[in-house]
Simulated assay, not measured.
Amino acid sequence: MPLPPVHFFSHGSTMMLGEESRSATYWKKCGDAALAANIKGVIMMGAHWDARGANRIDVAMHPSPAKSPVAYVHPSKYVDYKLNPDLKTGKRCVEFLNRSGFDARPNETFDWIHDTYLILIRMFPSGCPPTTIISMNGRFDPHLHARVGAALAPLRKENYLFIGTGGAVHNLYRNHWWQMLRYSDNFAQPVPPESSLLEFRQSIEDVFVRNTRSKDRSALRRAVTRLMKHPLFRDAHGTDDHFMAACFVAGIIDGTEGGEGEECELGAEDWELVNMCNSQFTIGKW
Protein backbone atom coordinates (compact mmCIF):
# COMPACT_ATOMS: atom_id res chain seq x y z
CA MET A 1 0.00 0.00 0.00
CA PRO A 2 1.45 3.42 -0.91
CA LEU A 3 2.14 5.90 1.85
CA PRO A 4 -0.46 8.64 2.22
CA PRO A 5 0.64 12.01 0.87
CA VAL A 6 1.48 14.81 3.29
CA HIS A 7 -0.06 18.26 2.81
CA PHE A 8 1.17 21.74 3.63
CA PHE A 9 -1.85 23.95 3.08
CA SER A 10 -2.03 27.74 3.34
CA HIS A 11 -5.42 28.40 4.90
CA GLY A 12 -5.37 32.14 4.20
CA SER A 13 -8.00 34.45 5.65
CA THR A 14 -11.28 33.31 7.18
CA MET A 15 -13.00 34.15 3.90
CA MET A 16 -11.36 31.12 2.28
CA LEU A 17 -14.13 29.18 4.00
CA GLY A 18 -16.89 31.34 2.54
CA GLU A 19 -15.62 32.03 -0.98
CA GLU A 20 -14.86 29.65 -3.84
CA SER A 21 -11.28 29.51 -5.05
CA ARG A 22 -8.68 27.34 -6.75
CA SER A 23 -7.44 26.35 -3.29
CA ALA A 24 -10.90 25.24 -2.16
CA THR A 25 -11.29 23.09 -5.27
CA TYR A 26 -7.90 21.50 -4.65
CA TRP A 27 -8.66 20.84 -0.97
CA LYS A 28 -11.84 19.01 -2.00
CA LYS A 29 -9.88 16.97 -4.57
CA CYS A 30 -7.37 15.94 -1.88
CA GLY A 31 -10.17 15.04 0.52
CA ASP A 32 -11.92 12.89 -2.07
CA ALA A 33 -8.65 11.05 -2.75
CA ALA A 34 -8.10 10.47 0.97
CA LEU A 35 -11.59 9.03 1.43
CA ALA A 36 -11.13 6.78 -1.61
CA ALA A 37 -7.93 5.48 0.00
CA ASN A 38 -9.86 4.75 3.22
CA ILE A 39 -7.65 6.80 5.52
CA LYS A 40 -7.61 5.85 9.19
CA GLY A 41 -7.75 9.45 10.31
CA VAL A 42 -6.25 12.93 10.02
CA ILE A 43 -3.44 14.37 12.15
CA MET A 44 -3.05 18.15 11.88
CA MET A 45 -0.90 21.00 13.13
CA GLY A 46 -2.38 24.44 12.66
CA ALA A 47 -1.13 27.98 13.20
CA HIS A 48 -3.44 29.37 15.89
CA TRP A 49 -2.72 27.19 18.93
CA ASP A 50 0.55 26.99 20.82
CA ALA A 51 1.53 25.47 24.15
CA ARG A 52 3.58 27.54 26.60
CA GLY A 53 6.72 26.12 28.14
CA ALA A 54 10.03 24.68 27.03
CA ASN A 55 9.58 21.56 24.89
CA ARG A 56 5.84 21.40 25.58
CA ILE A 57 3.34 20.18 22.99
CA ASP A 58 -0.38 19.75 23.68
CA VAL A 59 -2.70 17.33 21.92
CA ALA A 60 -6.40 18.19 21.59
CA MET A 61 -8.44 15.74 23.69
CA HIS A 62 -11.73 17.60 24.19
CA PRO A 63 -14.44 14.98 23.48
CA SER A 64 -16.95 17.60 22.26
CA PRO A 65 -15.03 20.69 21.14
CA ALA A 66 -16.77 23.87 20.14
CA LYS A 67 -15.75 25.91 17.09
CA SER A 68 -14.33 29.41 17.44
CA PRO A 69 -16.43 31.89 15.42
CA VAL A 70 -15.24 32.75 11.91
CA ALA A 71 -15.18 36.43 10.96
CA TYR A 72 -16.63 37.57 7.62
CA VAL A 73 -18.20 34.14 6.92
CA HIS A 74 -21.91 33.37 7.22
CA PRO A 75 -22.52 30.95 10.12
CA SER A 76 -24.33 28.55 7.80
CA LYS A 77 -20.95 27.68 6.29
CA TYR A 78 -19.66 26.08 9.49
CA VAL A 79 -21.92 26.02 12.58
CA ASP A 80 -23.63 22.71 11.74
CA TYR A 81 -20.45 20.89 10.72
CA LYS A 82 -19.87 18.16 13.30
CA LEU A 83 -16.29 17.81 14.48
CA ASN A 84 -14.91 14.33 15.07
CA PRO A 85 -12.05 14.35 17.62
CA ASP A 86 -10.04 11.12 17.60
CA LEU A 87 -9.23 10.66 21.28
CA LYS A 88 -7.68 7.22 20.85
CA THR A 89 -5.19 8.49 18.30
CA GLY A 90 -4.63 11.61 20.39
CA LYS A 91 -3.53 9.43 23.30
CA ARG A 92 -1.14 7.58 21.00
CA CYS A 93 0.30 10.88 19.75
CA VAL A 94 1.00 11.95 23.35
CA GLU A 95 2.82 8.65 23.90
CA PHE A 96 4.85 8.97 20.68
CA LEU A 97 5.88 12.52 21.56
CA ASN A 98 6.81 11.71 25.16
CA ARG A 99 8.95 8.80 24.00
CA SER A 100 10.78 11.27 21.73
CA GLY A 101 11.58 13.56 24.64
CA PHE A 102 8.78 16.12 24.40
CA ASP A 103 6.70 17.36 27.29
CA ALA A 104 3.49 16.26 25.60
CA ARG A 105 0.18 16.59 27.43
CA PRO A 106 -3.48 15.95 26.61
CA ASN A 107 -5.57 19.12 26.53
CA GLU A 108 -9.20 18.44 27.40
CA THR A 109 -10.48 22.02 27.13
CA PHE A 110 -9.20 23.19 23.73
CA ASP A 111 -11.88 24.28 21.23
CA TRP A 112 -11.04 24.05 17.55
CA ILE A 113 -10.10 27.15 15.55
CA HIS A 114 -10.76 28.00 11.90
CA ASP A 115 -7.20 27.23 10.75
CA THR A 116 -7.95 23.53 11.10
CA TYR A 117 -11.69 23.11 10.67
CA LEU A 118 -11.74 25.45 7.66
CA ILE A 119 -9.54 22.90 5.87
CA LEU A 120 -11.60 19.94 7.13
CA ILE A 121 -14.87 21.47 5.94
CA ARG A 122 -13.41 22.15 2.51
CA MET A 123 -11.79 18.70 2.21
CA PHE A 124 -14.59 16.64 3.72
CA PRO A 125 -17.85 18.57 3.36
CA SER A 126 -19.97 15.45 3.89
CA GLY A 127 -18.46 14.62 7.26
CA CYS A 128 -15.33 15.08 9.33
CA PRO A 129 -13.04 12.04 9.54
CA PRO A 130 -11.49 11.14 12.92
CA THR A 131 -9.07 14.00 13.53
CA THR A 132 -6.26 14.74 15.98
CA ILE A 133 -4.90 18.28 16.39
CA ILE A 134 -1.33 18.85 17.59
CA SER A 135 -0.37 22.21 19.07
CA MET A 136 2.69 24.24 18.26
CA ASN A 137 5.19 25.22 20.92
CA GLY A 138 5.05 28.89 21.86
CA ARG A 139 8.78 29.45 21.34
CA PHE A 140 8.37 28.79 17.59
CA ASP A 141 11.65 26.93 17.18
CA PRO A 142 11.60 25.53 13.60
CA HIS A 143 13.85 22.58 14.48
CA LEU A 144 11.63 21.57 17.41
CA HIS A 145 8.56 21.55 15.17
CA ALA A 146 10.39 19.45 12.60
CA ARG A 147 11.19 16.96 15.37
CA VAL A 148 7.50 16.86 16.31
CA GLY A 149 6.73 15.79 12.74
CA ALA A 150 9.51 13.19 12.76
CA ALA A 151 8.26 11.75 16.07
CA LEU A 152 4.77 11.20 14.65
CA ALA A 153 5.87 10.11 11.17
CA PRO A 154 5.58 6.34 11.88
CA LEU A 155 1.79 6.81 12.00
CA ARG A 156 1.89 7.63 8.30
CA LYS A 157 2.47 3.94 7.59
CA GLU A 158 -0.82 3.21 9.36
CA ASN A 159 -2.68 5.24 6.71
CA TYR A 160 -3.05 8.46 8.67
CA LEU A 161 -3.21 11.64 6.60
CA PHE A 162 -0.92 14.40 7.91
CA ILE A 163 -1.77 18.04 7.25
CA GLY A 164 0.10 21.17 8.24
CA THR A 165 -2.03 24.28 7.87
CA GLY A 166 -0.31 27.66 7.97
CA GLY A 167 0.79 30.03 5.25
CA ALA A 168 3.34 30.36 2.47
CA VAL A 169 3.22 34.17 2.63
CA HIS A 170 1.16 35.30 5.61
CA ASN A 171 1.89 38.75 7.01
CA LEU A 172 -1.30 40.41 8.22
CA TYR A 173 0.54 43.73 8.55
CA ARG A 174 1.20 43.81 4.79
CA ASN A 175 -2.32 42.84 3.70
CA HIS A 176 -4.73 45.30 2.06
CA TRP A 177 -7.97 44.96 4.05
CA TRP A 178 -10.11 47.68 2.51
CA GLN A 179 -11.59 45.66 -0.37
CA MET A 180 -12.63 42.89 2.00
CA LEU A 181 -14.06 45.22 4.65
CA ARG A 182 -15.93 47.42 2.16
CA TYR A 183 -16.89 44.99 -0.60
CA SER A 184 -16.35 41.50 0.92
CA ASP A 185 -13.83 40.87 -1.85
CA ASN A 186 -10.81 39.06 -0.44
CA PHE A 187 -9.41 38.29 -3.92
CA ALA A 188 -9.28 41.88 -5.19
CA GLN A 189 -5.87 42.78 -6.65
CA PRO A 190 -6.00 46.53 -7.36
CA VAL A 191 -2.19 46.54 -7.29
CA PRO A 192 0.39 43.74 -7.69
CA PRO A 193 1.85 42.02 -4.61
CA GLU A 194 4.99 43.57 -3.19
CA SER A 195 8.20 42.36 -4.83
CA SER A 196 9.65 41.04 -1.57
CA LEU A 197 6.62 38.80 -1.05
CA LEU A 198 6.75 37.54 -4.63
CA GLU A 199 10.39 36.67 -4.06
CA PHE A 200 9.74 34.75 -0.84
CA ARG A 201 6.80 32.96 -2.44
CA GLN A 202 9.18 31.71 -5.14
CA SER A 203 11.69 30.64 -2.51
CA ILE A 204 9.17 28.51 -0.64
CA GLU A 205 8.07 26.82 -3.88
CA ASP A 206 11.70 26.11 -4.78
CA VAL A 207 12.39 24.65 -1.34
CA PHE A 208 9.43 22.26 -1.39
CA VAL A 209 9.58 21.19 -5.02
CA ARG A 210 13.35 20.84 -5.39
CA ASN A 211 14.16 19.15 -2.07
CA THR A 212 11.57 16.39 -2.02
CA ARG A 213 13.15 14.53 -4.95
CA SER A 214 16.47 14.20 -3.14
CA LYS A 215 17.64 10.85 -1.84
CA ASP A 216 18.83 12.75 1.22
CA ARG A 217 15.83 12.44 3.50
CA SER A 218 16.93 15.42 5.60
CA ALA A 219 17.13 17.80 2.62
CA LEU A 220 13.60 19.17 2.98
CA ARG A 221 13.90 19.68 6.73
CA ARG A 222 17.16 21.57 6.36
CA ALA A 223 15.83 23.72 3.51
CA VAL A 224 12.51 24.60 5.19
CA THR A 225 14.04 25.51 8.55
CA ARG A 226 16.72 27.54 6.76
CA LEU A 227 13.99 29.69 5.18
CA MET A 228 13.54 31.40 8.55
CA LYS A 229 16.96 32.98 7.90
CA HIS A 230 15.91 34.17 4.45
CA PRO A 231 16.48 37.95 4.23
CA LEU A 232 12.83 38.41 3.24
CA PHE A 233 11.29 36.02 5.78
CA ARG A 234 10.12 38.78 8.09
CA ASP A 235 8.49 40.60 5.18
CA ALA A 236 6.56 37.43 4.32
CA HIS A 237 5.79 36.42 7.91
CA GLY A 238 5.16 39.17 10.42
CA THR A 239 4.99 36.47 13.10
CA ASP A 240 6.44 32.95 13.13
CA ASP A 241 3.27 30.98 13.90
CA HIS A 242 2.07 30.37 10.32
CA PHE A 243 5.42 28.91 9.29
CA MET A 244 5.67 26.20 11.97
CA ALA A 245 3.31 23.86 10.10
CA ALA A 246 5.78 23.85 7.18
CA CYS A 247 8.52 22.71 9.57
CA PHE A 248 6.17 20.04 10.96
CA VAL A 249 5.53 18.73 7.44
CA ALA A 250 9.25 18.72 6.64
CA GLY A 251 9.88 16.67 9.78
CA ILE A 252 7.25 14.11 8.76
CA ILE A 253 8.94 13.64 5.39
CA ASP A 254 12.35 13.47 7.09
CA GLY A 255 11.09 10.86 9.56
CA THR A 256 9.28 8.63 7.08
CA GLU A 257 10.95 5.35 6.24
CA GLY A 258 10.36 4.23 2.68
CA GLY A 259 9.37 7.63 1.34
CA GLU A 260 12.65 8.58 -0.29
CA GLY A 261 12.32 10.43 -3.56
CA GLU A 262 8.70 11.49 -3.10
CA GLU A 263 7.88 14.45 -5.29
CA CYS A 264 6.06 17.63 -4.30
CA GLU A 265 3.18 19.15 -6.22
CA LEU A 266 2.12 22.78 -6.02
CA GLY A 267 -1.51 21.89 -6.50
CA ALA A 268 -3.16 25.30 -6.32
CA GLU A 269 -2.53 28.88 -5.31
CA ASP A 270 -4.50 32.05 -4.60
CA TRP A 271 -3.38 35.55 -3.73
CA GLU A 272 -5.64 37.21 -1.17
CA LEU A 273 -5.75 40.74 0.21
CA VAL A 274 -3.09 41.74 -2.36
CA ASN A 275 -0.11 40.42 -0.39
CA MET A 276 -1.10 37.04 1.10
CA CYS A 277 -0.13 34.01 -0.98
CA ASN A 278 -2.02 30.80 -0.28
CA SER A 279 0.10 28.03 -1.80
CA GLN A 280 -1.08 24.41 -1.48
CA PHE A 281 1.66 21.75 -1.48
CA THR A 282 1.30 17.97 -1.54
CA ILE A 283 4.26 15.64 -1.05
CA GLY A 284 3.79 12.10 -2.31
CA LYS A 285 0.72 10.58 -3.93
CA TRP A 286 -1.65 7.69 -3.47
Rank of each mutant, 00 (worst) to 15 (best):
L97H: 13
L3C: 12
K28P: 02
H170D: 08
M244E: 03
T25N: 13
F96G: 03
W49I: 01
D86S: 15
N107Y: 00
W49K: 03
W112R: 04
L273W: 09
S21H: 09
L266E: 02
G46F: 06
A24P: 12
S23N: 07
I133Y: 06
K157N: 06
S203Y: 07
N275H: 03
Q189C: 03
P190T: 10
A146S: 11
M61C: 12
I204P: 08
A268E: 09
D115M: 05
W112L: 11
Y81V: 13
A51F: 04
E262D: 08
G164E: 06
F200G: 05
M15F: 04
H7D: 10
G166L: 00
N84M: 14
D240P: 09
N278A: 10
C247A: 09
N159E: 04
E257I: 01
Y81Q: 15
K229F: 13
E260G: 10
R213S: 15
H230Q: 00
R122E: 09
L197K: 06
G164P: 01
W49L: 03
N84A: 14
N186P: 12
T25A: 15
L83D: 11
E262P: 01
N171P: 01
E19T: 14
V94G: 07
L83F: 13
L197R: 02
F243A: 00
M15G: 07
E199F: 11
F243G: 06
T132W: 07
P154E: 07
K77D: 09
R174T: 07
D115I: 02
M16L: 13
E19K: 14
